[in-house]
Write a protein that binds this DNA or RNA. Structure first.
Lengths: 141, 141
DNA sequence: CCTTGACTTAGAGCGCGCTCAAACCCCTAG
DNA sequence: CTAGGGGTTTGAGCGCGCTCTAAGTCAAGG
């Protein structure tokens, strides 16, 4: 499989794949006779895992650490586990944060909905900076 | 309240507060006799809300849209509501994503833990690129 | 043979969200 | 009177994670 197909199948762009290889997130790929990268299906599994780390907000420099530990041999298992555990904890905390924020959003949206129900437009939730300079309610004609 | 205290109380740096004012996220603050920004407590509420939007991943340019609608008057309530609803939906989707990823992380961590239980270090989860070049297990001395 | 198009490299550029620097002003305490 | 510590402005710089450009190579199809 060459880079174009891997791009399609992995969802990364070919540019990004090369970039990842350069920085060490992806292995230096074998080249074919013409000097082109030739990938094995197996790489897809690794990329999928990287994607998980990425979507959960792990910075590249930390993925790199993980990748290097892996490359360093089986004995680094515990260190890798600790990285993942720390990351998991951060993700959990982030999820809690997001859920709290969702409640706030829901509440805020509700106040907008209530206001709209009362037909005439009027917003009495907490004050934003423009409150002073807000021209008097434009009293729909 | 001048900018230093607001910085302390809001958690933003004074630099960031000025930057937010420049780009329009925060109102142009009143200046005191000496030309310094003089804030009212009320600003804290708005900053707290911006923080919610920020921690839930709303890009600044969208917060700006929201801020401008608010400044445009009460009649923009429905538009603001729609922005928040769209954002809420994205956040919900993201939370689901994160939760799915947490399961993956937990599973992966478990395999590390299991491996460690078996005392000798050995990792047989899916293969990373270094598998070929991995030196034979360094057989703890 | 020639074109097409997918690939190669090194390196520059970009969008985001700050973050800091330089040069200056003003107030207060010692 | 002076030193210090807050503030002001404009504009440059930075870290991140890509993303793209330029110039070149190669293999297959017409």
């Amino acid at each position: 499989m060459q880079i174009g197909e891997l791009a399609k199948r992995s969802g990364l762009s070919a540019h990004t794949i090369r970039y990842y290889e350069r920085i060490g997130l992806l292995p230096y790929a074998d080249r074919d006779a013409g000097g082109r990268r030739d990938y094995d299906e197996a790489i897809l599994v690794w990329i999928a895992f990287l994607d998980r780390l990425k979507t959960t907000g792990m910075p590249i420099r930390e993925m790199l650490q993980y990748a290097k530990l892996r490359a360093a041999g089986d004995h680094t298992g515990p260190a890798r586990r600790r990285i993942l555990e720390a990351h998991r904890d951060r993700v959990r905390a982030h999820v809690r944060d997001l859920q709290a924020s969702l409640l706030v959003l829901d509440t805020k949206i509700d106040t907008y909905v209530e206001t709209e129900k009362r037909t005439h437009s009027h917003d009495d939730t907490e004050h934003s900076f423009d409150e002073q300079q807000t021209r008097a309610r434009p009293a729909r004609p």
